[in-house]
């Protein structure tokens, strides 16, 4: 038996230190959550929390999520609120490694004790990315942050995850040669509370706004429901996020008057995106065995029967990647 060479405080002391702003303690606790440490999960599940504003930012790679996050940090800090950021990047499916580079766009806040930034790899989270993110948000709420910003790249099922955990989901698109709508997948349309056409100073922005407006016009929202606005932004320009800040404030006010029922949280919004993600996961999990191909080629087994087999096979395969 070896004796620990680094003494650690009790969990209570660590949580207390974290609420007092001890960054070392906050960092260690977030790691514990990330590693699904049962003691920490239990400790924070039973603590009282305030109601922080959780803003999720999602969108395709390079659209400006980190730059917008940086701008929102400045916006909320100017209003005297403390801010925590979870910046989630994809994990390499081959090696399990990741390069987490989002905070490079947020370096100007490094000296501000009212800002805590944490990079997350969307790695094979034991409990799933959504659960880990949700618990990390809860921890940051226990610690006492007023605003929690969650950046996640809009690929695969991460959009679903973000809609589950955020009070406000912001979907960013950029005008790329007029094919802006290509970047907005069906599932993403469903989960947005606010659409941002970022890089709005570039050509094609108005076209993208028009495409989005059209795509949304087909929906028949219930009379009392929130209608996601489409705002223009230039995240890299001073003042370029003013309209987003206003839309976020409007949504926050709307939420105050329309508290979400726990348990049926945005069920309809999430359902469709979930389905997309499930189909996607199935597609990736299913490998068609050579023997199935051979039996169809030789006409030994009817095609329908082989498809039934494959459905069962796909269901029992665990996905390798997130």
């Amino acid at each position: 038996m070896s004796t620990p060479t680094v003494a650690r405080p009790s969990l209570d002391d660590e949580l207390h230190a974290a609420t007092q702003g001890n960054v070392r303690s906050i960092g260690r606790l977030v790691s514990a959550v990330e590693n699904a440490d049962a003691t920490v999960l239990a400790a924070i599940a039973t603590r009282k929390v305030g109601a922080p504003l959780v803003v999720g930012l999602t969108g395709p790679p390079g659209v400006g999520k980190s730059t917008a996050t940086d701008g929102l940090i400045a916006h909320y800090r100017a209003a005297g609120r403390t801010v925590a950021v979870l910046a989630i990047d994809p994990t390499s499916p081959l090696t399990g490694g990741a390069i987490l580079g989002d905070r490079i766009r947020m370096l100007r806040h490094v000296k501000d004790p009212g800002v805590y930034i944490r990079s997350f790899a969307a790695r094979r989270q034991l409990g799933g990315l959504a659960e880990t993110t949700e618990t990390a948000i809860r921890l940051l709420a226990v610690i006492g942050f007023d605003i929690i910003l969650v950046e996640t790249v809009g690929i695969g099922q991460s959009e679903v995850d973000i809609a589950r955990v955020a009070s406000t989901t912001v979907v960013l698109v950029s005008p790329r040669g007029g094919d802006g709508m290509q970047a907005v997948k069906a599932g993403v349309l469903e989960i947005a509370d606010i659409f941002v056409v970022n890089k709005a100073e570039l050509p094609g922005a108005e076209e993208t706004v028009r495409d989005l407006t059209e795509a949304l016009a087909h929906r028949r929202p219930a009379p009392d429901s929130w209608r996601p606005p489409i705002v223009r932004a230039s995240a890299a320009t001073p003042g370029g996020l003013d309209d987003l800040a206003i839309a976020l404030e409007q949504h926050r006010e709307w939420l105050e008057h329309h508290p979400v029922q726990p348990g049926q949280v945005r069920a309809e919004l999430v359902r469709r995106a979930l389905k997309d993600a499930a189909v996607d996961r199935f597609r990736r999990a299913l490998a068609v065995p050579d023997d199935a191909v051979a039996r169809v080629l030789e006409g030994v087994t009817p095609v329908d029967a082989v498809i039934d087999e494959l459905v069962l096979l796909g269901r029992s395969s665990r996905p390798i990647t997130l």
């Binding site: 490694g97 580079g101 000296k111 944490r118």
Partner: peptide, 25 residues
């Protein structure tokens, strides 16, 4: 990364004190 690590990369010209803050965050 290719060896399976999660790498936080912060670019050039960092102050030692900022590197320390990022390391503990």
């Amino acid at each position: 990364r290719d060896a399976g690590f999660e790498v936080i990369y912060t670019g050039i010209r960092q102050l030692p004190v900022d590197i320390a803050t990022i390391a503990v965050q």
